[in-house]
Design a binder for these strands. Sequence first.
DNA 1: GAATTAAATGTAAAAGCTTACATTTTGTTG
DNA 2: CAACAAAATGTAAGCTTTTACATTTAATTC
Lengths: 343, 343
Amino acid sequence: MVKNTRKKQLHVSTLQDVARDAKVSTATVSRCLNSPNQVAEATRTRVMEAVSKLEYTPNFGAKAMAENRTFTIGAIIPTMENAVFARGLQAFQDTLHKRGYTLLVASSSYSSDLEQEQMRTLISRGVDGLLLIGHDRHASALQYLEKRNIPTLVTWAYEPAAALPSIGFDNYAAMQSLADRVFQLGHKNIGMISAQIKSNDRARARVLAVQDMMTNNGLDKAHLKLIETEYDIEKGAIAFETLIKNSDPPTMIFCGNDVLAVGAIRSAHKLGLNVPKDVSITGFDDIELAKIVIPELTTVHVPHQEMGNKAAVALVDMVENKSSPLLKPLEAIVKFRNSLAAV
Amino acid sequence: MVKNTRKKQLHVSTLQDVARDAKVSTATVSRCLNSPNQVAEATRTRVMEAVSKLEYTPNFGAKAMAENRTFTIGAIIPTMENAVFARGLQAFQDTLHKRGYTLLVASSSYSSDLEQEQMRTLISRGVDGLLLIGHDRHASALQYLEKRNIPTLVTWAYEPAAALPSIGFDNYAAMQSLADRVFQLGHKNIGMISAQIKSNDRARARVLAVQDMMTNNGLDKAHLKLIETEYDIEKGAIAFETLIKNSDPPTMIFCGNDVLAVGAIRSAHKLGLNVPKDVSITGFDDIELAKIVIPELTTVHVPHQEMGNKAAVALVDMVENKSSPLLKPLEAIVKFRNSLAAV
DNA sequence: GAATTAAATGTAAAAGCTTACATTTTGTTG
DNA sequence: CAACAAAATGTAAGCTTTTACATTTAATTC
């Protein structure tokens, strides 16, 4: 006979142990735990006593195998360095926890390749559902999700026509309403500091909204002075300096996010420029920084918390009911503060 | 014969399938995947072809059960709303990923009870190791960890005598060196805005350092004007206002973290007070805000990234080698900027 | 080329849970 | 109280891997 000699370091009690202690079968114990109303009161209390006496906790692997699910949800976000993602994730996790799910976190560093690798990792870790940011990814990634049949929800973007359902706001529309206002204020010479546009549909939509505003108002979008840079205050400052030292400096600079905008404002300060008198600056996200900086930043408020909560609800629903969520964009409203003024 | 009629929605291939396709036993396939050098070149390529042809991915639950481990690490942090935790967690996750582990995240909202519940959840999810913040928790929680034999590491604090090993900095010592400097600058009438002290050893250590500084310098620590409040800019502002409207307002206010400090500075601004001329303010953490606010904030720099990375390395080591990490505190250095001046 | 050793592969138990179906117990009704 | 239904419990298969040990195949030595 083949004998398995692997030694357990310490004994963790199993269903068997509980069953033996309570003098019932393992099936009854299992039922006590998973559908308690199917078992008689007296038996149930006896079993539950044994459970707590033996400090029984179901073995995760066994349960996962038997049920073919893990009550685990994966999320792949660009980075938690970005406060707005971190907070959205916090809300997502909170709601998940209320629904009895745990959160597996991975980060993509804004790279679709890394994202795809992380997708595989999380899926092989048995997640029941997956949360992704934005719609930008290889077709192969979508195919993979399709094949593995993993419920997947996109957030931080809203595009009803996309392959995956999304719970988020319309980056283009939000930036558009800000841009329209900027044009009304008379700005014609415009700069923009954006996050890297490659494999980042949110950043791209924001830039596009500005370009379209220009085109629609008879400006040549080729004249948009655009700089792409990394998510970092210092990088925003550097980009601002480059833009403003141009022979024909812009009177207004859109920033793709608040962190870049704050860098720009700080740089303006250092160069002795007054915001918004000498140059207007706007951001996107409405993180806490936006209200701290002087002047307070005109920016687009991203409903990260609402988004995180709703995403959790929707994704759990997809997992449990195999339903697709109803798609309705969240509102991302422009917060007009003091960093934007007429030209 | 009992027949299991549960229907699989879609067929995901198993070891069996691969074995059949490659005309070998399941054992050989398993070896190909887990210890490839034990199998002959020719067989291996044949098997690997079958693996990719069938898009085989090992079943997580089965693997977890057979190996009795999950390559998953759990982390329970107070909240990702706090940027400094989010960033530490990002670094932790990055390093974990490099080591082949995935991160399961839960949050405690600064409550030991919730933390304990989350501990149970994560452990029942089969984590191989656990990361916690700070040393403050019920003895029962420690017993539970002990009994389940889960390698656990504490971060964000450093206390070699504590029950659990920790990788972090000495909150008391860091605040002490700031406090000493404050005394040198002649401040005798001192206020402090702290995070809630209950079940938060970090906050407590920071307050204690200030109190001890007072005692050591002949001041009555009972005269420390202390307010506890929540982690929020606005709460910091309110606390500041309360302190400064005292009949005998402090000349200097310690804040337990940068967010509170920024609120205080903003409040000072609104009340027409000059920082640091009218009142000095200091923070703790050194988040980006600290350098943005005017005046720039004197604060303690917390090495969140280093801490996250080192914690990951140490915890993986604990899991894999059952070793206890060598304990050496990380440096948390005071950054003297412009919000602190002589009385 | 027989004997011996080493390498490659196969066999089947074991991990701990859920659940379909079978069996027993309890409760209800005429 | 027999007959039947409903409720409670039990039995054991099945989920997918890993791996100890057994067996077969290949390589080496004299």
